[in-house]
């Protein structure tokens, strides 16, 4: 429908009383795209790193996620097992095929049954990492890729995320800077996740677990 394209662009330009942009104006806009400018960033997103971690926890819990903290990465498997036991949840886990996750001492938790793959219908519990945590709203930022299938974030009833506190940043903009700094191509899917799935569509009474996970649990790793 090239005709539709040309018609829309022509009508837009007629309305704006000008032709296609060129010259200085075009260069300015291209520069704006190449070097994005930040708008106002809320003060709450600009504290010290320890304040950002505290803010992240507070906001994630406000969004009804649950948060555990462990000192070292190697403590995470035990924390995951303890969470599942405490909540009386299945011990069969589908885990993101991520090298850093694989390096943790999961074998120490003999009750856990782990598969490393994308999620399928019927999977009850997933374990993933996240690309970053965003303090201002207690949000997780997850990027799709070979080692982080997106289905893990949505199909299981329980989603457990292991997040080093060092990956927590203040604002959304800090997260985008972090992503751009990797120098890699834009992932197919980036998910901001703030709390477990919910719906208020029946009488505006909020219920958790509409289509995505009923539980979102984060194990924060301090070291």
């Amino acid at each position: 429908m090239n005709e539709a394209r040309e018609q829309s662009l022509a009508t837009i330009r007629r309305g704006l009383k000008r032709g296609p942009l060129d010259g200085t104006r075009r260069v300015e806009l291209e520069t704006r795209l190449a070097h994005p400018l930040r708008h106002l960033i809320p003060t709450r997103a600009q504290g010290s790193h320890s304040e950002q971690v505290a803010m992240w926890i507070r906001m994630a819990e406000y969004a009804l996620a649950t948060v555990d903290q462990v000192a070292r990465p190697n403590d995470a498997p035990a924390a995951v097992a303890a969470f599942l036991a405490r909540e009386n949840l299945p011990t069969a886990i589908v885990m993101a095929p991520d090298a850093e996750l694989a390096a943790l001492p999961w074998e120490s938790q003999s009750l856990l049954h782990i598969e490393r793959r994308a999620a399928r219908d019927g999977d009850q519990v997933s374990v993933t990492t996240a690309f970053a945590g965003i303090a201002e709203t207690g949000t997780l930022m997850l990027c799709s890729g070979p080692d982080s299938p997106t289905t893990l974030n949505f199909l299981p009833d329980t989603h457990i995320v292991l997040l080093p506190t060092a990956w927590i940043v203040g604002s959304y903009e800090d997260g985008w800077d972090l992503l751009r700094a990797t120098g890699e191509a834009m992932p197919r899917t980036i998910n901001y996740i703030t709390g477990p799935s919910r719906s208020g569509d029946i009488e505006q009474t909020m219920q958790l677990g509409a289509h995505g996970p009923l539980r979102l649990h984060i194990v924060l790793i301090s070291a």
């Binding site: 906001m59 799709s144 070979p146 997106t150 899917t189 998910n191 901001y192 477990p196 919910r198 995505g212």
Partner: peptide, 20 residues
């Protein structure tokens, strides 16, 4: 403060992706 899911989609799945 923010909706639960804000999802950014860019193109189709990459060759190495396991889903999408």
């Amino acid at each position: 403060e923010l909706s639960v899911y804000t999802t950014f989609s860019t193109g189709p799945r990459r060759a190495e992706d396991a889903d999408g």
